[in-house]
Amino acid sequence: MSQLLEVKGLKKSFDVTRGLIKRKKQYLHAVNDVSFSVQKGEVLGIVGESGCGKSTLGNLIIQLLEPTEGEIIFDGVDLRKLPPEQLRKKREDIQMVFQDPFSSLNPRKRVFDIIAEPLKTHGSYNKVELEHEVLQLMDVVGLNRSYLNRYPHEFSGGQRQRIGIARAIALKPKLIICDEPVSALDVSIQSQILNLLKKLQKELQLTYIFIAHGLPAVKHVSDRIAVMYLGKIVELTTKENLFTNPMHPYTEGLLSAIPIPDPTARKDERRLLEGDIPNPVNPPTGCAFHTRCPYKTELCERVEPEFTEKRDGHFTACHHPLKEGKGIISQHEKY
């Protein structure tokens, strides 16, 4: 597998300075020094609580937001160094599936116009070809062909999300960023959409960055998972590793929060996270997680841990990584 995307030292801070007189500059570091890479054909899940910067990260990669610092190397080019017109053309290769299917479709456009828009923007099709392409896309995402002339308000959330997915895959992009694509949907619909995304990924050899706020959703589709906390990635490893041998206490907390339907399969101890995420304008010193960490030491309050490879392909930023087997799934279990 070759590398498709590499993010190096990505930072985004928002100026949140308030007041005219006491003007002390204050910044919210939504994404704070994040580096990772994504291989072709891989699905990288990104999880974290609300406000941890995962959506900002997605918006930075797709260039909806301008990073403060860092490089985004996509397909060998640094997207930040591209002149506007070239970036606009490059957008063909990166697409996004949005969280809220009710706001991501223009209420004044028909399904045909919505799905045809990317094709019209980047290709030259005549009317017949365009219609043909759109109909095929509708087949692929499981939309009835007769919906061609309908407007978004006539659809349910799940169907709207299918329209959004059709729009995203229309250009056969190399990378799709799914920004919590199922969290706005009914539970019964969530798995349908997840299965659709999974199926498309296999059939079209797509690469996803899959953003979600809980582990259950990403578990289904991801190859590797990155856990974010307060603008930083605290753990990054394969899905198997993460669920069987988490190293960061935050990951452990997230894992314990997953409900297990079978009572006999439950472990005795649950380490549920306590407290709230600290104010990102004033992050704690040292390890950002130490305010909520059950294992914290004096070192954690003082020194910020580095994000390094602790085991083979298993990165974490923790002074006291957990021992193996702390996950909710034991090594031999299937999931």
């Binding site: 909806l64 957008r91 063909e92 969280q99 991501s104 828009e117 990317p118 250009l171």
Partner: peptide, 12 residues
Amino acid sequence: RDFVRAAKTIGV
């Protein structure tokens, strides 16, 4: 709104 952001990501 997201549909305008979507149009931007498409490169419209």
